[in-house]
């Protein structure tokens, strides 16, 4: 293994940042949600990279749990988006302004 672990961490940082910018910029709720998935995956990559660096499998176990939580989060989040779409006829988060005075 010749690739330095820090390269993986930099890729992870870039992916996380792209996901963050996606959450900040996009207005379609589904694409915001996909950006959140991208962020979760970037963190998983960092966890596995640190697991490799430290010679310890705990990071991989944590990445595994993070995948389980991501699966549960996707199920609930998509259900919320579907029910929001039923109420507002739009997946645009700017249209969900029920609390706006």
């Amino acid at each position: 293994m010749r690739t330095p672990i820090s390269y993986f961490l930099l890729v992870s940082a870039l992916l996380f940042t792209i996901g963050t910018v996606g959450v900040l910029v996009r207005r379609n709720a589904l694409i915001i949600f996909m950006s959140i998935e991208l962020q979760l995956n970037a963190v998983n990559l960092a966890l596995v990279a640190f697991s490799r660096q430290n010679g310890n499998l705990t990071g991989q176990v944590l990445a595994f749990f993070s995948m389980v939580v991501a699966a549960a989060e996707v199920v609930v989040g998509l259900a919320i988006i579907v029910s929001l779409y039923r109420k507002r006829r739009s997946a645009d988060v700017d249209d969900a302004s029920l609390l706006k005075g």
Partner: peptide
């Protein structure tokens, strides 16, 4: 954010550590 994480990685691990421990 990218620059900040990159700096943290550089300070923590170094950008070109040649030896990765045996797995």
């Amino acid at each position: 954010l990218v620059l900040e994480i990159g700096l943290a990685v550089r300070l923590g691990l170094g950008l070109s550590t040649g030896k990765v421990p045996d797995f």
